[in-house]
Design a protein around this nucleic acid. Sequence first.
DNA 1: CTGAAAGCGCTAACAA
DNA 2: TTGTTAGCGCTTTCAG
Lengths: 334, 334
Amino acid sequence: MPDVNYRKVTRVDVAREAGTSVAVVSYVINNGPRPVAEATKQKVLAAIKKTGYRPNGIAKALASGSTQTYGLVIPDISNPFLASIAHALQREAFKHGHVLLLGDAGDSRVREKELINNLLLRQVEGLIYTSVDRHPYIDLIQSSGTPCVMLDRVDPTEGVSALQVNEKLAAYKITRHLIEHGFKDIGIICGPIEMLNTQDRLSGWENALVEANLGIQKKWVIAGQYTRDWGYQAIYQMQKIGFPEAIFATNELQAFGCLKALAELKLRVPEDIALVCFNGTVQSEYTVPTLTTVRQPVDKIAEKAIQILQNWPNKEAICEVDFELQIGHSCGCW
Amino acid sequence: MPDVNYRKVTRVDVAREAGTSVAVVSYVINNGPRPVAEATKQKVLAAIKKTGYRPNGIAKALASGSTQTYGLVIPDISNPFLASIAHALQREAFKHGHVLLLGDAGDSRVREKELINNLLLRQVEGLIYTSVDRHPYIDLIQSSGTPCVMLDRVDPTEGVSALQVNEKLAAYKITRHLIEHGFKDIGIICGPIEMLNTQDRLSGWENALVEANLGIQKKWVIAGQYTRDWGYQAIYQMQKIGFPEAIFATNELQAFGCLKALAELKLRVPEDIALVCFNGTVQSEYTVPTLTTVRQPVDKIAEKAIQILQNWPNKEAICEVDFELQIGHSCGCW
DNA sequence: CTGAAAGCGCTAACAA
DNA sequence: TTGTTAGCGCTTTCAG
């Protein structure tokens, strides 16, 4: 039974109790870097138990110069897609003894900067970063020398590591899928138009249409936010000008909003209007109808991201990962 | 323009540059605890800029004995309800200069323990904790002396602070709502039966039925997991024995699963069968039909949780927060 | 108002 | 194999 600790028990106490030196206690706890005689080791272990000693990770971090901590900076953890990324990342990081500091920017650019600064002060050994907007604070991070992987589409600025699917291609593919269903009028609901991934998804959509000689109609591009509400609003906006045959929502939240609005308008998916989306999560398999969506390999991304941070610095700046078209019923497939 | 730093620049460098002592640099950076002459202050500020100095939070934490860090231990961050809690918590914590260490246990009891230990070593100043199962590691936490708020229903063990809605009452109320719709046969889909919140939700359901003289039928209690898939399976299980008029899914994920299965079976909600659930998130407002659900005041919970940690130790062990019935269409309301 | 110096708890180089 | 000790970068007391 551990002693009651009035004063925090430190390694000195353990050493005294075990009748040995602090160094030996360290060696036992860390299994190195020096070997310890079995008998001594047992005495130390006993002393640790008796004193109820717990190592202080902060002191260890200071002395060893390693915090075993990564920072995760994202716009909003309650976005299911980002939550699934966070889930995978923390799992992967923990495999390597690392823990994640959660930096949820609440969709605020100001907050995002504060968070990055804060995490940097805390000596995170790497940052996994998806920015709220098109101008991530990479200079801030780089000037600190902290390893960083962006999960965003990013200006091909020098030295930034980024992990991403080829969004233009993915958008092309999913639009193409709609075209193969025979749809000719295909609308797109976008996020903020200045964002690079918005532009990529948009241009993938355009490419597919152009390739199929379908022509691009301005009226079917509805740019706004990557939110449920915006998806919802977009439908009502479309209602005024007449609906396309199919809609490409550029993220899953928007698609949820679409489903709701379409149901209110008594429009059936996919019979009356087809719907597909980007970056679906498992929830897309549970909507009615199930959503056809571009699915990112979240586990692979997490694995790769941690890998990049661990092998820092590395050359391969931009790293592309495969996406997958997850076919649901919402596009017309049965 | 900051110097290129071969060696990390520390406070000593700044002091030298400013022609003052390290203590003064501290006073300037922390705005205390001693006052500094304006002129000196300016010199220090200039030196900081010139050297590109960044304080080391780890060293600060060690010296000051305060990490400004809380740990969040939950079964799975990709559960939307927990994600919304995490979102609110991080926001609230950050207001007070604190950051969250994310401990996603991946629904594993073993992992959960490892995480708690890990976070404890890291000297978190508080833990916000929802356990994977009915036996949280409170002894572990308490023996470390770390403040802790459970967001679970918890055995009234001594000294554990917990923040929770009255789940029994909430379950009663929502079941009652179904009864008021005129439903007599009301099924319930539960999580693992040994968990306390499962039992609470179950007994709230029973209370409402008994009170209305409706009698309790064993066959309409389907216990399993708090997952989408279990909700899905439960419907097919019910199909074999005939459906009740209404179903109470005891979390939102299960309800999503129900919606999918019911759609597959061409059963309309609420016309053919009504559905309500527990702990809905904003997503419940976007399903078709929208879900009637017990909604927890996530922001208030976060605020209160941080408050409890900050005012540690505090007497009020178990603290109840209000829930809210969010009415959707799934119960039959229009 | 400012400087010197003693820690915070641990690591690891150096000695023994 | 083990002990001693000088840091890690910062805070803060105690003297000036």
